[in-house]
Design a binder for these strands. Sequence first.
RNA 1: GCGGGUGUAGCUCAAUGGUAGAGCGUCAGCCUUCCAAGCUGAAUGUUGACGGUUCGAGUCCGUUCACCCGCUCCA
Length: 570
Amino acid sequence: MTAVQPKSMDEIMSLCKRRGFVYPASEIYGGINGFWDYGPLGAQLKKNLRDAWWQDVVMNPCWGRSGPDGNPVEIVPVDTCIIQNPRVWEASGHLAGFNDPRVDCRETKNRYRADHLLVLVHPQDLAAPCVAFLEGNEDAARVRLEKLLRPGRGSISAGGSISAGQNVSAAGDVIAGDTISAGLNITAGRDVSAGKRLESADYIVVSMMDFPEERIGQVFGPDAKTMGTLTEPRPFNLMFPTVIGATGDPEADKAYLRPETAQGIFVQFKNVVDTTRVGVPFGIAQTGKAFRNEVTPRNFTFRSREFEQMEIEFFCHPDTAKEWYAFWRDWRMEWWKSLGLAGDNLILREHDRDELAHYAKEGAGTSDVEYRFPFTAPGFGELEGIAHRTDFDLRRHAEHSGLGDKLKYFDPTRGEPAPNGQPKGERYFPHVIEPSAGLDRGVLAALCEAYTPDPERPSGVFMKFHPRLSPIKAGVFPLVKKDGMPEKAHALATTLRKKFGHLGTIEMDEKQSIGKRYARMDEAGCPFCFTIDSDTLADDTVTVRHRDTLAQERIAMDAVPAFLGEKLGI
RNA sequence: GCGGGUGUAGCUCAAUGGUAGAGCGUCAGCCUUCCAAGCUGAAUGUUGACGGUUCGAGUCCGUUCACCCGCUCCA
């Protein structure tokens, strides 16, 4: 199943453009980094994947199978706004987490707020190593810098490489590298003159915010063993800011495009509980666009700045979270498999503990459904994450909104029995299992999986979409454009459109040779073609042409709707 | 963010500093009884953008944008 030779991403992208699956966004203006548009076939492909999710998650949850409690799984949908009250993002942690410049350490993978990070620098030598430290650790940093700067203490150290143009004074008690260079910034009040022996107290403390970028390579990170592992301070503006209102005060009226659809669900949790007949355990589902100002958009549509999510927030009692987590993890994997992403290219990967997001640290775990894209091979890229988010989000919103315990769920099925024999009920913050899938990534995986080079056939390649995902469900062709065949074909196409038109296109084409029309359908990924020929006129049978095998069979024309319906899983 | 590469028709690619082309696809007509068949014809480009050098730039130089690859990043 797995292609030994990885498929060429260039060729897949070329086909996507050629056949109208994906175009560069605003291409006639030179495009825009990190944004892609779907063409006619791509838009339908994406809708089919979203519809499949909606059907299997919302309308018929988990294909009708029971949850770990033995009852049918209950899911209701919502559709919440892309723009929310900015305090939503304050509560969720997205605002605080990404509004300040960050410094990353390549060695330790630690991330620091740049305004909390201080740097101990030599007052004179611009080339000397520096030591970064967190507030409160200044003494240790001084000791460390001391060791670095004068291992031989007092004498000119062996490693004191003096670079060209460096001005070392004659005074013997100046260590190598102690230069008074022009343009040096010495803080006010410091009396550091040539020849003076440096004491630890003379080192200067500079905020990382003010530290010159070009010298970042000389800095030892707070926990790093080697020099130069810190990145420059970078603002992590994950969220796209926007402005609300006609006056448009950029600060007072500031709002954000949502970075995830999940928070809209948490914010409406109480309304859903109060106004519908759902009871824990149940889930709320939503699809919609989300926006992230990615540092590096890359790899076609895989990491784009505007993308669509398909998210479930499944609420359950804390005691049952573990079983529900395992249930969703396993079923979500099955679901992707059912759409043709099978074989070695799809894996379920449980996260290591230290990989977990802040909200999931205490939970039962996090897993990814991952696909081996041509550009990640032999590695994998995430399609969907299934996380036990605990009650983190509901608690945060309870605090920030001031609702407090009112946001707790009252569960009438739990608690001690009252004198009348009924449970007294229990008030709690439900735990949340979040299967969160990337729709655009799913589409990309479907495109990559479907792409099948085949030198034997005229098109040289065909798109082996699962029939459920195919943007074109069927082609209907008269073998030749005469003898009443076009009329018969039109009639069949009309019948099929009435029955299957909501699922995808029924393509009717009477132009050019039959081989050319089949080839076109191969590249578009149409699974079945029905061809009307002279025999049809005599006995009302048609040829079915199978995309994947090139096989042909004859069936009665009035059996075509049932045939197609069965193939499409209806 | 850093380094490397690429950018010419819808796609794949040509074009010594000297008139921008081919194949395929697309479209029209004829023909055609099952896999891009055949014949005839048609449309399609500010050579990614801007600037410079030059009598003259697709070609040389600079800037910029986009994409690809490798690092980096991805609560």
